[in-house]
Amino acid sequence: MKQLVELKVNGESYETAIDPHRTLLEVLRENIGMTGSKEGCDLGACGACTVVIDGKAVLACLTLALEARGKEITTIEGLAKDGKLHPLQQNFVDHGAIQCGFCTPGVIMSAKALLDENPKPTQVEIKRGISGNLCRCTGYTKIVEAIEVTAK
């Protein structure tokens, strides 16, 4: 049976009627229309669907939308403010850390959660922080560089 749910995404409230078996990723993409978070493996192994919930990076494909009620959800769409890119996004562009771009929203959300918790991470900590995100283009060096520059 459908339930009326209020989700707080990027500081704004969205009300939508959903079945309990819908994941947060499905609701974000299909009901709310935020297609920034990507569906990769859909089984929790790739990190493409990473969003930040209450300050922690989690996988939207393995979170039930009903579970996310009353929590602060941040997606890639919530980073740019007033038409200006978030420093992480800008550095990803400047350093060529985007190849095909499919993993980028997930990596940036992982990096954001990491930098919010630890503003000055070492290179090892950065690599560990984004270890849950697979980049099929294998462009990890530039991703790590972009995050390092942002942390400086």
């Binding site: 929790g44 996988l59 992982s110 849950g132």
Partner: peptide, 9 residues
Amino acid sequence: VASPQLRNM
């Protein structure tokens, strides 16, 4: 265990 995201969950 697994990855940072999965450890958070």
